[in-house]
Design a protein around this nucleic acid. Structure first.
Lengths: 198, 198
DNA sequence: CACGCTATTGACACTTTGCCAATAGTCTCG
DNA sequence: CGAGACTATTGGCAAAGTGTCAATAGCGTG
């Protein structure tokens, strides 16, 4: 099983090798937990010696985090200009676009969804936070609202909701797409426009 | 470091021992990731031999999951009878009660929040799902709405939102408690009452 | 063609995990 | 009260995994 000796020794530029390893390893980590995949298996999948993984990433864990970082980032594709529409409609179209993305390459995004493992300052938490923050700004931009810290915080809080709703829709099938769209649209509107009373 | 030999051999009933180990080990897992805590350390904390952990829980992982299961369950304390109030007010009081709980013993609940690790069918995912489902039913009951599958699904989807909002409020301090309450109340109202168009 | 730089390897040492036979509490029965 | 049975508990063993490091071998240069 762990036959891995790469009979041919290919030499790549460091950057290229880094990327190649990450890509070769991604599928393994997308469907199996961190602990279930051994360094030997990772190395075999990438066609390199075990030592090389530590050489490039320091530890197995860091490679894992790196793979996750590039797996959970919301794809920034272009959204048609919505500036002429009223706010509610802009929000609706934006959420629809997100649902579309989720349905298409969503697999990874949602499975990685709940994301972040527990334990306080986990390294993964940091990565997921980055991604959520990124998604929040992307959404604000699409909706046409300013990149205000308060708004970002609010939209960031919504990221987990978007994922859980997508999961109910795509995985558990307890929601229809129409429902998901309605619920998310309304919620984003509330979070984006509700004034503080204090 | 790994000096652990329990000089005295105490004998407990299986159930008692199980519980004692779980409790002794909980603090370790609440602030350190799964991989950072060795079986030796767990055993030392519980004052038992390493082998006993495998004897009772099978694997280190299963003990971990067990600890998490009992850490993320929403505490079911009694909420005064709200049945005389109008729906929005019932929701508001219920959410206020949840925020109260989060602020008090929330530490664990929130840190364990985002919860669930990635990878499809993870064992942890199952536990977190259980907890979210439980919380959804508890909330529906408090609000005075029926235990309908559709409603449960919707409320369940909100669980991650509640946690992320609490985190923005308590950890990042980007939201005030009043804001958190307003936002969650409105969102729950939407999820609980919005009709399906299809 | 020889040399140097460095990407890559393979073996080694150490930690950790799960397993199992041996040990020793505790309870029961004569 | 003492012997024996039952089983909770232990300690050591073997396998697996991880990270380190000196040695190897591509590839470009003079």
């Amino acid at each position: 099983m762990t036959t891995s000796t790469p009979s041919v020794r290919s030499r790549l530029e460091p950057d290229a090798r880094r990327l190649q390893i990450i890509e070769a390893v991604r599928p393994l980590y997308l469907e199996r937990p961190f602990n279930d995949v051994s360094t030997a298996e990772l190395a075999a999948a990438a066609g390199v010696a075990r030592g090389l993984i530590n050489h490039y990433f320091g530890s197995k864990r860091e490679l894992y985090v790196e793979v996750m970082r590039s797996s959970i980032r919301m794809p920034e594709s272009e959204l048609p200009d919505l500036s002429a529409l009223p706010l509610p409609e802009r929000v609706r179209r934006t959420m629809d676009w997100i649902l579309e993305a989720a349905e298409t390459y969503g697999q990874a995004w949602i499975s990685v969804s709940g994301a972040a493992n527990l334990h306080g300052d986990s390294d993964l938490q940091v990565v997921v936070d980055e991604a959520d923050d990124h998604a929040a700004r992307l959404t604000l931009d699409a909706i046409g609202l300013p990149d205000d810290p308060r708004l970002v915080a609010r939209l960031r809080a919504i990221a987990p909701l978007v994922k859980s709703v997508c999961r109910e829709w795509l995985v558990r099938e307890t929601l229809t797409r129409a429902e998901a769209l309605d619920l998310l649209t309304d919620t984003v509107l509330i979070f984006a426009t509700k004034e503080t009373s204090s």
